[in-house]
Design a protein around this nucleic acid. Sequence first.
RNA 1: GGCGGCAUAGCCAAGUGGUAAGGCGAAGGUCUGCAAAACCUUUAUCCAUCGGUUCAAAUCCGAUUGCCGCCUCCA
Length: 481
Amino acid sequence: MAITLYNSINRQKEEFVPIEPGHVGIYVCGPTVYGPPHLGHAKSYITFDVLVKHLRHSGLTVRYVQNITDVGHLTDDADSGEDKIQRQARIDHVHPWEIVDKWTRQYMNDMEKLRIAHPNFYVRASQHIGEQIEAVQKLVEKGHAYEVNGNVYYEVESFPEYGKLSGRRLEEQKEGVRVESRSDKKNPRDFALWKKAEPGHILKWNSPWGEGYPGWHIECSVMATKYLGNTIDIHGGGLENKFPHHECEIAQSEALNDAPFCRYWVHNNMVTVDGIKMGKSLGNFRTCEDLLTSHSPEAIRAFVLTTHYRSPSNYTEEAISAAASGLSRLSQLQTALLEIIEKNVSAGTADNEAEKLCGEVDAKIRERLDDDIDTPGAIATLYSFVTEVNRFISASALSARVAAAILTVVKEWGSEVLGILPAVSNKTDVDIAPIMQMLIELRQEMKDAKKYDVADAIRNRLKDAGILIEDTRDGVRWKRI
RNA sequence: GGCGGCAUAGCCAAGUGGUAAGGCGAAGGUCUGCAAAACCUUUAUCCAUCGGUUCAAAUCCGAUUGCCGCCUCCA
């Protein structure tokens, strides 16, 4: 079945057809590295992580490029704002590149912990200054941009299709625009391609227009087309970037290359906390680092993925705890299946039924993800599969062979594509395994002697030490909690 | 003011014309020395409200109300 994606530019689900059969080029707007990665970043990058993994799992070769914005974005508007990175550097009394370096590392770190696959490569704005200058020059030559006092602006009027992504028409906006004082733009809607460096500005480069730095949008146009071609298959990013950022990217790229910039625009919705937008100024944002101290990466992913990417995720402690609880059934199943495999059970009365179910579930999950990455639907399918398989296990009706087949399906989607199934950790516990074996035997002796207080004490003390003992019909099981 | 989106049980959340998936929580039960895990049963006569189209609507259309995002950097 074909993969469909909701294409923001046409506002409808469309069948995804790559330009070059079998190959996909995807560009996703990355973070501006001046502060800690937060849940909003997590939602966006987990979304695109699943999209890319699903495309690959479907047999496509994907080149996934993500940028790291390490220069230029401003706190305010083009004329009066301050470089966010530079401002943070001033506050911290360090060089701007220390800020960039610190938060880039933190970002990479957090993303890795969240089981987000590294894009094929990251691209940095600061490493493409030359290309950006060339692009700006070319835009000036083609009559789409003009220079005033060392600043270069894109002339929005020169690109009639400006607004096609966000549904804004120029005429409508003129009236609503605030009066910008001290602006040397021809039209308030024009946006900066190159900014003159004011005295004291540290991150600056030489250009035909004097010392300065690139505008906010040009880096993405330049880097996306440099690595993925003039027309890219998929461009992803947060909804809030639709306007003006993505709109400007289109205007620049299409004016520059005379080719459609992007075929499928994919925008993820935002994260709210207790129903309110998460933002620094509101003091309610949750960093990935904080979240990871109290929740597993899988729980965070499950929380994010149980909401469709185009709907807002509302963060509450209850919601993320519920996600974690649901997940424990999945890991529990994994453990149970491994036990059956280990015991090498030869035949099961439910084998046929279970094998059939495997095929159905596999197809259903694929269908859900094919349908505009319906991760909530995929997870629901996986969870009801868990219940059905547990029923077979309760009836001791599975062979090792079929248990392995089930495990393959569970891991394929739960671990490889969705990334919500934790890895089995007992391998790392080989060192304490003999000790555990001794304690379990000792406790069994106490139980046999009906010394339940001692047996329970052993169990309780182990629990305090972070190890959970479970008596099952097939023996004692232990795991770290 | 302009543009866009959303409203489904206590909570989270699918379903986009054929009569309400799944998870969490809660209650009861099975198993167990007890716990845990697992399984079984129950938990929305109804999908914000009001109209309309249709044999049939949570699903399409219109209006109303509420919430959210963008319109200045933001995932």
